[in-house]
Amino acid sequence: MSVVTRLVALGGSWGGITAMQTILRDLDLPDDAALVAVLHRQPIRSALADVLVRGSAYPVEEAEDKAPLRPGTVYIAPPDYHLLVEPAWLSLSTEEPVKYSRPSIDVMLESAAEAFAHRLVAVIVTGASDDGTAGARAVHRRGGTVIVQDPKSAEQAVMPRSVVEAGVADRIAPLHELAATIGLAVRSRPGPGHE
């Protein structure tokens, strides 16, 4: 299996690293799925991929421009670049920050919604801004599934609450149940060979 037909796109900011670690520890993806993520952080060289890969069942890579999407791989946006999703690869951009953020969760989700439509599962976890809400709307419009961390269980509730209030959340789950919820949602999307 070399083609990614179903995608998980995750966004978070404040507390997002811990949340994503928790998810990666328990996540079980089908063979044709990959995960892309934008976590806001200071634009410095960091070893975020090294931190996230601990306890993760999947390899974690900082995205390279035009990197082919490979199943069973987790890609995170590099600092100071927007991460855009194409049907078969990832693209980077240094365009202006959106809502003061680069990488921007909205930019990632809008491009992923375009590329994967109903084969996309978007996940919004803890965060202190409303970045991700416009992106979640785009995912919703394109027929993808939007999963939101229960604001009550989030370190910072602003980001998940904003998506819930926009009325585009398909599932709301506490942190410790997110991995299972994501796994089920991805499997409910049409896999390879299905239209």
């Binding site: 959106v98 809008e110 375009e114 439509a117 109903h118 709307r137 785009a138 394109r142």
Partner: peptide, 17 residues
Amino acid sequence: MSEPDLPDPATEPNAST
């Protein structure tokens, strides 16, 4: 800078795409 929503009246997810 917030991006305006892309208008998309279609209900069929892939048709408009």
